[in-house]
Design a protein around this nucleic acid. Structure first.
Ligand code: MN
Ligand code: MN
Ligand code: ZN
Ligand code: ZN
Lengths: 159, 159
DNA sequence: ACTATTATTGAAAATGGTTTTCATTATCAA
DNA sequence: TTGATAATGAAAACCATTTTCAATAATAGT
C-alpha cells in the first residue's frame, strides 16, 4: 500500500488537513515512533521513545494523540490483558505487516502476529458480517480475533 | 432465594473441593447472580445484585471471587471497551446460551450475542488453531472473536 | 509578514476501576 | 469440637487514563 516517507513530507499530512486538525511536532514524532516499530507499544512506551528526541513532550499529549489517531483509523488500539492499552499502526500504513491477527500468551503477555489462514478467515468473516449486519441491523466496522494460550518458553518454565 | 438451604449448589461444588478452595456464602451468591442473567455484568453490577440479598458482602470479595472463577474457567472475562471488565458464565455452565461471539456497539456499548455461522467459524478456528500451535509452538486455550460497529438505535441518533 | 483565531499543549490534579493490606471471621478436615 | 488456614470486609493504595486550565503554537485571512 502506502510507503513511509523518509524526509520532510509525510503521508499522514493530508490526514490532518481539511478537518481543522493541525500537524504538530508531537504528533509527527509519535507517528514516527509507531512507524518505526513492529511491536505493540503502550502509551508509556511511546512516551519514553518520544522523550529521547523531544523531552518536552508530555504523557498527556501522547494519550490525546493516540486517541485521535485511533479515532481517525490511523492506528489500532488493543487490549492484550496486561491492563494497559497497546497500539499498532493500521495495516494500510504498516510497511511490513499486512492484515493479521494475534496470538497472546496469557503468562508473559507476549504477542505474536500471524497471517496464516487469514484469507480463509477473511472470507468467512465477510460472510458472517453480511449476515449479522442484516439480521441485527448493525453496521460492522471492524473485527477482532485473538487466540489466547501459552507460548513455548512459558510452557517449559512450569513443570 | 433464601438464607439457609441452598439447593442449586450442585454443579460448582466439586469445582471447589480438592484444591483447598472453600465454598462460601458470597461465592454461592455471586454464582447465583451470574447463573440468573443473560447479561454481561460488571463487578459492580454483580456487587449491587448480591447486596440485595446479602448486604454484608463487600466489593472486594466480588472482585476476588470473579478472578478465581475466571481462573477456574467457570466464567469468562471480557473487555467491551467501556473501561470495566464484564463477566459471563462459561458456555458449559450457561443454561440458554451455547458457544457464541459478540457484536459490540462502540457508541452505546450494547453487546449482542450471536450464534450465526458459529459452526463454520468453529471449523475454521480449529483448523487455524492446529496450524498455529504447531508453527509457533503455542498451546491455544481459547479464542476471542468480536465485531465492532454501530447498532441501529445509535445510527438513527446520529446528526 | 502580521495578526486574530483557536486547536493544541504540558503540568498538575482528579478520576475510577481494580488491587493490596491487614485484622477478623468462617470453613472444613481431623 | 477444634485447630489450621482460607476467605472476608473496610480502608487505603494503586495506577492507567482523563480532566482542568492557563499558556503556547499552528493555521487562515489580511
Ligand atoms: Mn499486531
Ligand atoms: Mn455473551
Ligand atoms: Zn509466554
Ligand atoms: Zn448502540
Amino acid at each position: 500500500m502506502q510507503k513511509r516517507c523518509r524526509q520532510g513530507q509525510s503521508w499522514w499530512q493530508p490526514k490532518f488537513q481539511g478537518r481543522g486538525y493541525r500537524m504538530t511536532v508531537p504528533r509527527q514524532v509519535i507517528l514516527e515512533v509507531l512507524s518505526g516499530t513492529e511491536k505493540h507499544l503502550s502509551a508509556e512506551d511511546i512516551y519514553l521513545a518520544v522523550q529521547k528526541s523531544y523531552p518536552h513532550v508530555g504523557l498527556t499529549t501522547v494519550y490525546r494523540t493516540l486517541e485521535l489517531l485511533a479515532d481517525m483509523g490511523v492506528l489500532f488500539k488493543f487490549d492484550f490483558g496486561d491492563r494497559r492499552a497497546r497500539y499498532e499502526l493500521a495495516e494500510e500504513f504498516q510497511v511490513k505487516k499486512g492484515h493479521h491477527h494475534h496470538l497472546v500468551c496469557t503468562r508473559c503477555k507476549r504477542v505474536i502476529d500471524y497471517t496464516e489462514f487469514i484469507d480463509q478467515e477473511k472470507e468467512l468473516l465477510e460472510k458472517t458480517e453480511r449476515g449479522l449486519m442484516e439480521k441485527y441491523d448493525f453496521s460492522i466496522e471492524k473485527h477482532l480475533i485473538q487466540f489466547y494460550g501459552t507460548c513455548g518458553k512459558c510452557r517449559k518454565k512450569t513443570v
